[in-house]
Lab assay of single mutants.
Amino acid sequence: HNLTITQGKLFFHYNPKLCLSEIHKMEEVSGTKGRQERNDIALKTNGDQASCENELLKFSYIRTSFDKILLRWEPYWPPDFRDLLGFMLFYKEAPYQNVTEFDGQDACGSNSWTVVDIDPPLRSNDPKSQNHPGWLMRGLKPWTQYAIFVKTLVTFSDERRTYGAKSDIIYVQTDATNPSVPLDPISVSNSSSQIILKWKPPSDPNGNITHYLVFWERQAEDSELFELDYCLKGLKLPSRTWSPPFESEDSQKHNQSEYEDSAGECCSCPKTDSQILKELEESSFRKTFEDYLHNVVFVPRKTSSGTGAEDPRPSRKRRSLGDVGNVTVAVPTVAAFPNTSSTSVPTSPEEHRPFEKVVNKESLVISGLRHFTGYRIELQACNQDTPEERCSVAAYVSARTMPEAKADDIVGPVTHEIFENNVVHLMWQEPKEPNGLIVLYEVSYRRYGDEELHLCVSRKHFALERGCRLRGLSPGNYSVRIRATSLAGNGSWTEPTYFYVTDYLDVPSNIA
């Protein structure tokens, strides 16, 4: 807008934040220059609390790290170098490059900038070799853009010569660093050979998330399962459950009422301010606690030095998902009996873990797994792929695949051998790939016309006998059925096997 004052003059007093240069501009645009008398524009009460600059400061050096910015700028000295009290560095987070010096300023003089007072450097006698002032900004957020400017702080001049310097606002972004852990990993099994893994992005990506790394490792069953005799009275049979499938998407929606109208769909109840505040506090606490764990609990591995020492970490090797089922080394339970199943799973520490690289999504279907087997899954978020990966501390989750139908069934015939004193040795093959492992066998036998009897055969007993022995049988026709019990439950009964026990007292003698 054009402003013209045809008559009258300007009068400025007691404006401590208004620089004289701005008042002189007002004289020019209003056409009143030359009308004012000496005392109409006070030299001592206008701009006496402001830094009124008329020179431009330029930054000469900028260096960044993930949490620091090192700045240096060209030296500046007023005509009387004693008038320079120091520099004021202003900075704040700036997602967009549209910041002005006066953003967030209120009537009390406060604003949204963080201000650092910096002492002037030592003055050199040689004007050509003056030290460049600077400042190291610490405690910054990774991968965050900051708006920065600097200006001088000078003393009051009796001659009211307006001098000083100020830089333009520059924008500097800190470097990326390792992201925080992925949030809320959930693993479920939808079949006997697959596990579905879902997660949420890290709360602090500290860069642009480029991919996720998912490692999985087959877990050995508890050692007590191999040692305890679950045929003993009072000892509860062990059981394991597989990871249940995901709930429906509708039930997972946030901010939804727990109660549904019987007449149909209901609208979600909005969260109160107290609920939102509580969630923010919980989120802040979780982030602080995660940072504490990362800094205190997890110790970084030592990389190899120039002395030739090897990095103890196993090298990563990509495998196809079809090879995942046989990740671990199978060892027989008892070496003397080769027909026992290889369900003991000690994992070799030198073995390469299978892994998958996930790009542009937060889910993965891990296939080719062994049925009813526990897996430990390790999830890392990465925001750099080359020249070397920059990934987060791992988040861990466990899951067990679903049982395989008929995996616990005894394959092959049940054979028998009759000894003296009416002892019958029953023999059968253990299931080759049971659900988890076989903890015991149930032997059901009966003599024709009598009630059915049951015998429990422990895992250890089966390994020693290759089956079991029935003792003290009365003469007669017998039928026997056997079924295995694994961590997933009972298998199917075998087809009945028949044998006849004679009275050993009636056996004919070869003595003449």
Rank of each mutant, 00 (worst) to 15 (best):
Ser203Arg: 09
Asp204Arg: 00
Ile209Pro: 12
His211Cys: 01
Val214Thr: 04
Val214Ser: 03
Arg218Glu: 10
Arg218Thr: 13
Arg218Gly: 14
Ala220Asn: 10
Glu221Leu: 11
Glu221Gln: 07
Asp222Arg: 10
Ser223His: 11
Ser223Thr: 08
Leu225Ala: 08
Glu227Ile: 11
Glu227Arg: 08
Leu228Asp: 11
Asp229Arg: 03
Tyr230Phe: 07
Leu232Pro: 12
Lys233Arg: 12
Leu235Ala: 09
Leu235Pro: 06
Lys236Met: 09
Lys236Leu: 11
Ser239Trp: 14
Arg240Lys: 15
Trp242Ala: 04
Ser243Asp: 08
Pro245Glu: 09
Phe246Pro: 08
Glu247Ser: 12
Gln252Pro: 07
His254Trp: 14
Asn255Thr: 11
Ser257Pro: 13
Ser257Lys: 07
Glu258Met: 06
Glu258Val: 06
Glu260Asn: 15
Glu260Phe: 08
Asp261His: 11
Ser262Thr: 10
Ser262Asp: 14
Ser262Phe: 14
Gly264Cys: 03
Gly264Leu: 14
Glu265Ile: 07
Glu265Asn: 11
Cys266Thr: 08
Cys266Phe: 08
Cys267Val: 12
Ser268Gly: 10
Thr272Gly: 07
Ser274Leu: 06
Gln275Val: 08
Gln275Ile: 11
Gln275Glu: 09
Ile276Leu: 06
Leu277Ala: 13
Lys278Phe: 08
Glu279Ser: 08
Glu282Gly: 14
Ser283Asn: 08
Lys287Gln: 08
Lys287Cys: 11
Thr288Glu: 14
Asp291Glu: 14
Leu293Ala: 14
His294Arg: 10
His294Met: 15
Val296Ala: 13
Val297Arg: 12
Arg301Ile: 15
Lys302Asn: 10
Thr303Met: 10
Gly306His: 14
Ala309Gln: 11
Glu310Arg: 06
Asp311Tyr: 15
Pro314Tyr: 14
Ser315Lys: 12
Ser315Glu: 12
Arg316Met: 10
Lys317Glu: 08
Lys317Gln: 10
Lys317Met: 07
Arg318Ala: 10
Leu321Cys: 15
Leu321Lys: 14
Asp323Lys: 02
Asp323Trp: 14
Asp323Phe: 14
Val324Tyr: 03
Gly325Phe: 11
Gly325Thr: 13
Asn326Leu: 15
Val327Glu: 09
Val327Lys: 15
Val329Pro: 09
Val334Thr: 10
Ala335Asp: 14
Ala335Lys: 11
Ala335Leu: 13
Pro338Asn: 05
Pro338Arg: 11
Pro338Thr: 11
Ser341Arg: 06
Thr343His: 11
Pro354Asp: 15
Glu356Asp: 07
Glu356Asn: 13
Lys357Trp: 02
Val358Gly: 10
Val358Lys: 13
Val359Ile: 12
Val359Gly: 09
Val359Arg: 08
Val359Pro: 08
Ser363His: 04
Ile366Phe: 13
Ser367Ile: 09
Leu369His: 01
Arg370Gln: 13
Thr373Pro: 00
Thr373Val: 12
Gly374Trp: 03
Ile377His: 02
Glu378Leu: 04
Leu379Phe: 07
Gln380Asn: 13
Gln380Lys: 07
Ala381Val: 05
Cys382Leu: 00
Asn383His: 12
Asn383Glu: 02
Gln384Val: 08
Asp385Lys: 14
Glu388Met: 10
Ser392Glu: 05
Ala394Pro: 07
Ala399Tyr: 07
Arg400Ile: 07
Ala405Lys: 14
Ala405His: 14
Lys406Ile: 13
Lys406Leu: 09
Asp409Ile: 11
Gly412Leu: 10
Phe419Lys: 08
Val424Ser: 01
Val424Glu: 02
His425Pro: 01
Met427Lys: 15
Met427Asn: 01
Glu430Met: 13
Pro431Thr: 03
Lys432Asp: 13
Pro434Arg: 02
Asn435Cys: 02
Gly436Val: 14
Ile438Tyr: 02
Leu440Ala: 10
Glu442Arg: 07
Val443Trp: 01
Val443Cys: 02
Arg446Leu: 12
Arg447Val: 06
Tyr448Met: 14
Tyr448Phe: 13
Asp450Gln: 14
Glu451Gln: 15
Val457Leu: 14
Ser458Gln: 04
Lys460Phe: 07
His461Ala: 09
Ala463Gly: 13
Glu465Met: 08
Glu465Ser: 11
Gly467Val: 04
Cys468Trp: 11
Pro475His: 09
Pro475Ala: 10
Gly476Asp: 00
Ser479Met: 03
Val480Tyr: 11
Arg481Pro: 00
Thr485Lys: 10
Thr485Val: 03
Ser486Asp: 01
Gly489Cys: 02
Gly489Trp: 06
Asn490Tyr: 15
Gly491Ala: 06
Ser492Met: 11
Trp493Tyr: 15
Trp493Val: 03
Trp493Pro: 01
Tyr498Ala: 13
Phe499Met: 06
Tyr500Ala: 12
Tyr500Gly: 07
Thr502Val: 13
Asp503Arg: 12
Asp503Gln: 14
Tyr504Gly: 07
Leu505Glu: 08
Asp506Arg: 14
Asp506Ile: 11
Val507Gln: 15
Pro508Leu: 07
